[in-house]
Amino acid sequence: MLSNNDFPKLETGDWVKGNLHTGELIIGYIESLSSLEGIAKVKIVTSDNKDINGRTIALLTNQLKRLPAANVSNKEQILFLIDLALATGDEEWFKELSAKLNSMTQLLKEVNA
């Protein structure tokens, strides 16, 4: 029998990838998590099965792998992630990215002054 320590520790808001029992690849983020039951409700952002894009589905946590945090280093990457935050309705992430973009812009102004 597997213990909870055998699975990666996932948290609400984590970006994850996994495969459905039918084999389709999914990428999305965890909306809610029941660690006792080992079930995560995942908002699907992209999938091999286009019919489930945008839906929330329940998956076993052992079907999921946390995606590494993005190390954003340029304006274009931040703008892309802002678009993604808007598309997914993640207001907190949008504000965080906007603040990062504003600080980058301010730094450029100071360097070029």
Rank of each mutant, 00 (worst) to 15 (best):
S35E: 14
I78H: 03
N62S: 09
N5K: 10
N5T: 06
N112E: 15
A113H: 13
K9Q: 08
L59C: 14
G89T: 02
L67I: 09
D51H: 11
D90Y: 00
E92P: 02
L67R: 08
M104N: 02
I27V: 13
D90C: 00
K95P: 05
K100V: 01
A87K: 08
L2S: 13
K9G: 00
L67Q: 12
K17D: 06
L79S: 13
L10F: 03
D51A: 12
S35Y: 01
V72T: 12
D48E: 15
Q106V: 11
N62K: 08
A85I: 11
E11G: 00
L33I: 06
L64G: 06
L84M: 12
I57C: 09
K17Q: 14
M104V: 07
L59F: 08
T56N: 00
N5I: 04
I52R: 04
L60A: 14
N49P: 06
N49D: 15
T46V: 04
T22E: 14
I82P: 05
T61I: 15
E92C: 00
N5Q: 11
A58I: 00
N5D: 14
S34A: 08
I30F: 05
K65M: 12
S32R: 13
E37N: 12
T88N: 09
E31A: 10
L59W: 01
L10Y: 07
E37D: 14
I27L: 11
A40N: 02
G89K: 04
P8V: 05
D51L: 09
D48N: 15
Q106E: 15
D6R: 02
K17H: 09
T46L: 01
L108Y: 12
